[in-house]
Amino acid sequence: MRLFRDLLRDVRFAVAFWVLCLLLTFAALSLFSPYDPTRWGQVPRDLRPSAEHWLGTDSNGQDVFWNATFAVRNSLIIAVIAGVVSRIIAVIVGMVAGYRGGSWDRALMFLSDSLLVIPLFLIIVMMAMLIRASLNLATLGLLLAFFGWAWDARLIRSQILSLRERDFTQTAILSGTGTLKLVLNEYMPYAMPLIFSTLINNMAWAIGLEITLAILGLLDMSIPTLGTMLYWAINYQAILLGRWWWVLTPITLSVMLFIALYWLSVSISEYLDPRTRVQRVGA
């Protein structure tokens, strides 16, 4: 609790925290939606915002406000799946590379360096193109997780490298602690803050890619996400026709989401360790 109070003193953290709370509430509202998000033509098309339809309606005959609640929820689900699964990969790779060292280290770091250099966006497009038919929230999350661990595995590895040099490592080994136990019980607590701040960054990355893939028409367009909402708005020329409420809703929501996630991660990592700010804000 003290930690939380300290963090709230940072304006960025406070803003990010409340904005995220707001967005989570918004996403939770989807549970009470009077409309089915997968069905079209439930309300009159292209209405301006009014008391009945707070954010108007779109050309598919859906209520923009309620559709947006589903969009935020689904985008967050994709982000959480991608973030958590890629964290597991990153932690395993980082810890094995950092602790085992030697040829394991070289092989794993070569792999992650390659993932950083190769234009992954294109590889992801290639894969999405082939499995589009079976691309739902979970599979998209897993696809992104599979490619999203490289940079963070590097960060975790360097932290493990420095922990391995500390005295307590020797003490633990000499007193007979097994490798697995040493890594899980002794190293994990140190690595946790780093893992958490990379999780937030990774979630933002996943949402950004989800939006991009949706715009390219590579997702199932009947599932409302921030990306597919924008896709339909652009597809129906909402900008030219002046339907600003339809275009601006997903844009505003995603800008809020990206800034909130970023500020949260920056303020947390600065609070935890001001000296390594560089690594975490890094390119």
Partner: peptide
């Protein structure tokens, strides 16, 4: 920079376009 940095390319380009 704190505001601009986290925005993905798509959203930022689209906002400028609008």
């Amino acid at each position: 920079a704190m505001v601009v940095r986290p925005l993905p390319y798509y959203i930022f380009a689209f906002a400028l376009l609008l």
